[in-house]
Structures are given as C-alpha cells and as structure tokens.
Design a binder for these strands. Structure first.
Lengths: 339, 339
DNA sequence: TTGAAAGCGCTAACAT
DNA sequence: ATGTTAGCGCTTTCAA
C-alpha cells in the first residue's frame, strides 16, 4: 500500500523486460506475441499501473497536452465565464487546463507564469491588463511557448482575441443620445488600461460628433473596478446632475444601481445606466441592466482555439481575432424627460 | 534561442561540476568558496537558468508545494469565492494551487483527479457532491495523498470542512415562522445530496415543532440548481399559495426574485423569500436577499489549512471542522399580513 | 519476438 | 572545497 508500482515491477511480474512493457503499453507492441501483450495488459490493470508523469515528461518534452490560463480573478463572473469557454475547448480536445488566478498581483502573476513554464505547458492564455509583453517574454525566458493575450491592451501587440472597445463606447453613446439625454457621465477606473481608454474614447467621440457636450475633466468619475466601487460612487453620480451614465463594466453598474436605489434615485426614470460586458447576472438585477455585450464565453473558446492552432503549427505570425460587441437594451435606460 | 539551458551548461561555463552548481543553487553550498558561488549565481542569472521541473520532481517526489482543487464550476460565485479562500492560504504558504473545474461531469472529475495524482500534487481539496469516497480512493490508486472534502455529504466520512445544514434549515424556518407565515414552500433540487437533504429536514422539523403545517409531498418544489432554475419555477411558486419560500441556495432565490417580479408578485409584500449561502451578490439584487450565511471564503481558508496540516503530519486520523451558519436579514422577507 | 543499454536533467550519498 | 557516481522511472535506439 502506498508504494508506487513502476514499470519494472510489471516487467518482473510478467517475466519480460521493461522495454517490452513500455512498448506494449504505448501501443507500439505489434511485434510482440499476443500472449505477452495480454499478460502485460492484465498486470497493468491488476496493479493499476500508471506511468510516472514526470519521468515521461522528462523524456518526451512535448505533447503534455496542458495549457495554462492566467486570469486576475476567477471569482469575478466575467473571468469565470471566460475560463468556462476555454475549458469547453479543452474538454473537446482532451487538453488539461491549468487555471491560475493571480488576484491582480504582478508578482504573483510572474510567479505563476514561471510555474507554468517549468511544468512544460504547451501553451498559455494570459488575461491580465497589467502584464506587458516584455514581462511575459521575460517570464517565458526565450522558451518558445505559444501564448495568446486577452483583455490586455496596454500595448497592442501579440496574438490575441479582442473586441472593439471603441465601438462599444460609441454604441453606448448613440443609445443614450437617441433617448434624448443631454448630460452624460462616464464612471470608470483610475488606472486606465487600453480597453477602458478605448471605451471612453468611443463614448466621447460619438457624443461630440452628435454635437453633445462631454468634457473629460468634468464628466468623468473614477472609482474601483467592482460592485463596491460602483456602490460608493452613487452619491457623486447623483450629485453630478447627469441623466445618463455609462460605466466601465457591469460590476460597477450593479453597484451603482444599488447605491442609487438607496438614495431614492430612480433608474431609469431619473438616471439611465449603461453597463459593459453583459455578464450573466445582468438579467437578474433590478432594473435589468442595459449593457454592451461582449461574447465572453466565445472569447474563451476563441482564445483556446487560436492557441491550439499555434501549438500545432509553430512559428506562425502574429494574429488577432476580433469579436463583435453589441448593445443589449434592457430596463436601466429610458428616454430623457424634463423633470 | 529556444534550446534550454541545463545545469550541465552552467557547470561547464563555470568550470565546475554539476554537483557544485546543484548544491549552490539549492542553498546547500556553504562549503564552497565564495568566488565559486558568485560565479555560479551570476551565470544562472545571465543564462536565466531554471531547473527542470520534471527532472526535479522525478527525484524529489515530494514537497512540490502544489495542491489540487477540484470544483464543479469556478464561474459560480459560490465556488469562485471558495477557491479564493483556498488561494489566499496558498499565497501565504507559497503553494501552487491547481484549479480544476469539472462541470459536474463525473467522468471529467475522475480524469482531472488522475491528472493531479500523476502530477504529484501534495494534497487535494475536493468539492463535489457526486464523488463518493470510493471513487476518490480509486482515482487516488492507493497512493497516500491527503485530501479534504467539501460540500460532499453523500456519505459522511472523510476529513472535511462542513457547515450545519440542518441548523441552517431551522434558522430559515424560525425566521419565517416568527414573521407570522403559515403557508410554506421549499424550492429545491431533485437530485438530493446530503447537504440539501439536511437543509430541508431542519426546515421541516422546525416548522412541525412549532405546530405549523409542512408536507414534503405538497410543499416541496423541484427545479435546477441555478438562477435559471429559480426563474422557471416562479409560476409554480406563485400558484402554490405559499407566502414564505425557502430555496436551496441563493442562485435559485435570485432567479425566483426575477420570475416573481415579472409575474407582478411582490417580494416581500406578497411572498417572503429566504435563500442559502450568502453569496456576495445578495446585496445587489432587489430586494436584497435574506439568506442563511455560510462562511464560504473561510471554508476555503479552512480547507486549505487542514490540508496543509495533513500534508505535514501524515497519517492523522479523520478530522471534521465545523463552520457556523447564521441568518442574515435583508429585504426579501417581511411579516405576514392578510391580503 | 525480445532485451540490453543509453540517457532525459537533476540531486545526493560518498569519496577525495 | 570540490567531484564521482548512482539512480529517480521512463522511452528508444540498436543488437540479438
């Protein structure tokens, strides 16, 4: 009990050499007699022999069929859904996905990356707004491990899946403008990664193009990227006088909804709110959240598929796959009317 | 580029033996001269040498400092939070947590378990209501890997973290009874695992003890364990005539809230709803959900700590750690009043 | 039809 | 203060 059974044990028990066992068990044993083969197979089952993973990897070096997935936080619905998408592909392709949740801590992200590299993963999906390509390459230490980026738009390089954040911002602006609103507010985060920058830029440009007023100094509020953040910003939003608010993501929007409710500010009667992401929860809050839909699950699927492609056909040139965004009208937006 | 630098390369470059390099790099090199040590360290940095994980594991067999975590679905807030708890401990203790999300698929759960075993993890946390101890032991193939169970109460054996589900059910019943309700309903799931059974038993027993009416055939409704499930059950709940509903978990409750809202049934004015779990979202739905609190994050922390303890002091006897549950009053429950 | 031997990259007794 | 040697468990030539 406890002592691990090795290939040598099986060989001894079968009265053959380790070579024979190895060959038979790896399906390369046509040349051996049927009786030998059956004897070995039987012993394998009887003793529940499983080849040692590390010994194997030490020799084989590839086709471990393992991919790494690095996200900021699995417990956020957004990344949870993304990971599910990756996993669906992994299941189909018999890949083992190693999931790492680094809590937005750059040190930890680096440590996990190194771990994955050490463990000879075949490829890797990185969803982290903080990691620069340089940091990634450094952690990957000139090993040629294919990787794919997601939600990481500080610098726009590297193979990645991407949605059009600028267009998302435009969609939000158009919707709100069509509803007749005049006074807009963007509720975002301080530490601007490129995707958030783009959303804001699209929002602003679209507004200005419609000859509506939007001033980045006056009409932008910052908070934390969380429900809590949105909640805390409610007072400031209410006092801003805006009737139409666009938030950096749905989490912030949900917090804002709660905060406004507690302040007796009605949504959408007094203030319209547009979120971003279209997480699965949006339909379960009240009012149901109007938002910009990103195909989160599909992004996971897409990332995994591209990665697989790169693993199989090494040395491909950089590639970028775009996914569409669209407006989902629900209950948190309504036409502007004079108070 | 690409070619991996090995310990031999470093040794050759430094003009010393591989032993020397190995010892120095593993902090066992006091006996070597300072100049040798520095030379080696410098070369290590220069060539970015990282010892091969598999070669290492092949020899060391232990202290890989890796634990496995198997959950049904990371994208569910409940398990996401649990995993975060585990990860917090992992970070503190410099452990690498390998997270597997098996989508409630027993085959996949088994496959992942085997993967973890192969990868010589030091211990493992299993959160799966479906896996029997027998299945687990089989996958662990008489290897002595410490593991700890969570949310897995089919058979009440094995080291595990646990909350008192029976008491949770009682709390829900008491609360609703104190509010003056008379007609109760339990909205649960078909496939009864022990924890759900206990919740229902506590709920029922408490009601009966208060001389209130509750009949398992008449006053129990089944649906899927998801928001969608709760949503779909709304019609049936509304038609049941019950004024007080206890749901198997918060997800179901949230779906129910949405469904009832669409049916113009007011919560809590017409129907009071009590959930179970106290996931972080509860405060962001409307009305905010009254629920039975389980310390989900702490359960993750606790599971990880117990596991660590078992890894360090092998062969301990079975142990069970209990965590408290309590009622959280929010807005979804109110006193019963005649209509 | 089978097996001996080499070796993957590393660590650790055991010399020297 | 440093090196030699054996070996972890496996796969894979190459020889018999």
């Amino acid at each position: 009990m406890g002592k691990k059974v090795t290939i040598r044990d099986i060989a001894r028990l079968a009265g053959v050499s380790v070579t024979t066992v190895s060959q038979v068990l790896n399906g390369k044993g046509n040349r051996f007699s049927k009786s030998t083969r059956e004897k070995i197979l039987k012993l394998r089952d009887e003793y529940q022999y499983v080849p040692d993973f590390h010994a194997r990897s030490l020799i084989m070096r590839e086709n471990i069929n393992t991919i790494g997935v690095l996200v900021p936080n699995v417990s956020e619905p957004f990344f949870g859904t993304f990971v599910e998408g990756v996993q669906q592909v992994a299941r189909q392709e018999k890949l083992i996905p190693l999931i790492f949740s680094a809590n937005r801590d750059p040190k930890l992200e680096k440590a996990y990356l190194e771990q994955m590299v050490e463990r000879s993963i075949d490829g890797l999906i990185i969803a982290s707004a903080r990691m620069t390509t340089e940091m990634i390459n450094q952690a990957l230490i000139n090993r040629e491990i294919p990787y794919i980026l997601f939600d990481r738009n500080y610098d726009q390089v590297g193979t990645r899946v991407q949605t059009d954040d600028y267009h998302g911002g435009q969609l939000a602006a158009q919707h709100l403008a069509e509803l007749g609103h005049r006074k807009f507010l963007y509720l975002g985060v301080n530490h601007l990664t490129e995707n958030f920058k783009q959303r804001l830029a699209g929002f602003k440009d679209s507004l200005l193009a419609s000859h509506l007023s939007f001033n980045e100094d006056r009409d932008v509020l910052h908070t934390e990227l969380s429900r809590q953040g949105g909640y805390k910003a409610a007072q400031a939003v209410a006092e801003s006088g805006a009737t139409a608010v666009f938030t950096a993501n749905d989490d912030i929007a949900m917090g804002l909804l709660r905060g406004l409710r507690e302040l007796k500010v009605r949504v959408p009667e007094d203030i319209s709110v547009v979120g971003y992401d279209d997480i699965a929860l949006d339909e379960y809050v009240y009012p149901q959240l109007t938002t910009i839909h990103q195909p989160i699950f599909d992004l996971g699927v897409g990332a995994a598929k591209i990665l697989l492609d790169r693993i199989e056909n090494k040395h491909q040139s950089e590639q970028v796959e775009h996914f569409p965004v669209r407006l989902i009208r629900r209950e948190s937006t309504a036409p502007y009317h004079m108070v």
